[in-house]
Nucleic acid binder design. Structure first.
Lengths: 138, 138
DNA sequence: ATAAAACACTTGCAAATCGCAAGTAATATT
DNA sequence: AATATTACTTGCGATTTGCAAGTGTTTTAT
């Protein structure tokens, strides 16, 4: 995931150049759920990302303006990673991934329940979720 | 992209296990635009996928039920690749990728024009596009 | 009928990336 | 002052990528 140059002007291709790998959207997901995470928080996620890969993805996501890194208010040893507006705007995309997976795969009951709400009124759900996320932006 | 086992039950993670790489959604994109492609058609796409990578991705997409391979009606030397219903159902996701990229990157004028239509009435656009794609399913 | 071209891949191989384990430097806790 | 946390970095073998060339079948041209 190093200095990946643009393969073409196509929006799909340009997007994949940035987050088209197995880990970037996992990090985005964690930040959408938790609003803000430390490096250690992200390491703990279920999929067990390797520490060097996490570091490289965080750098790439920051370079591409999807996340921001800021000082932790309580400790100089920690940093906070948050989504930027550009990262928050990936929410509709994340919702669609969820809905697609819900249609074709077995999901945990808890997740399925949450998606019921989404399906009830997608527009409204996204609107609410977006404004919730926006409040955390530094 | 070989026999990738599931990292977790999360819908994002499950989805990325299947198409979370730099090439799979490029192939899906081409099939959405062209409705059906031969191997050679896909090789010609702007991003210049390597032939061995194309072969491996086609196999993986077929194994995962996103695309289907069928005989070409005009020639025994050719095969047709098409989206399955599961592949077609990635359309809303592809639309959101386009809209996100449209917001944050410079797109070709032609593509921007097409997206104007989408933004005018997203629901309707998707509905129409889905039924257009559905007609091609073998 | 035969040779050349087209088509869909496969193979070989060097280079890049991944992922595990261990290490480092700064800060925090005891 | 010693130990633990935190956020990474480094080393290294294994896997994946991407380029180039090759293979086998079918189609087209002569």
């Amino acid at each position: 995931m190093k200095n990946s140059k643009k393969r073409s002007d196509c929006p799909i291709s340009s997007s994949l150049d940035i987050w088209g790998d197995k880990w970037s959207l996992i990090i985005v997901r964690d930040l959408m759920f938790a609003k803000q995470c430390t490096y250690g928080d992200l390491l703990k996620s279920e999929e067990k990302i390797a520490t060097n890969i996490l570091a490289s993805r965080l750098q790439s996501l920051e370079e591409n303006g999807i996340i921001s890194k800021s000082d932790h208010p309580d400790s100089k040893a920690k940093f906070l990673y948050k989504l930027t507006q550009k990262g928050i705007d990936l929410l509709p995309l994340m919702v669609e991934i969820n809905l697609w997976a819900d249609k074709y795969y077995e999901l945990p009951a808890k997740r399925k329940e949450e998606l019921k709400e989404v399906k009830k009124d997608k527009e409204q759900y996204i609107k609410t979720a977006l404004s919730n996320l926006k409040q955390v932006i530094s």
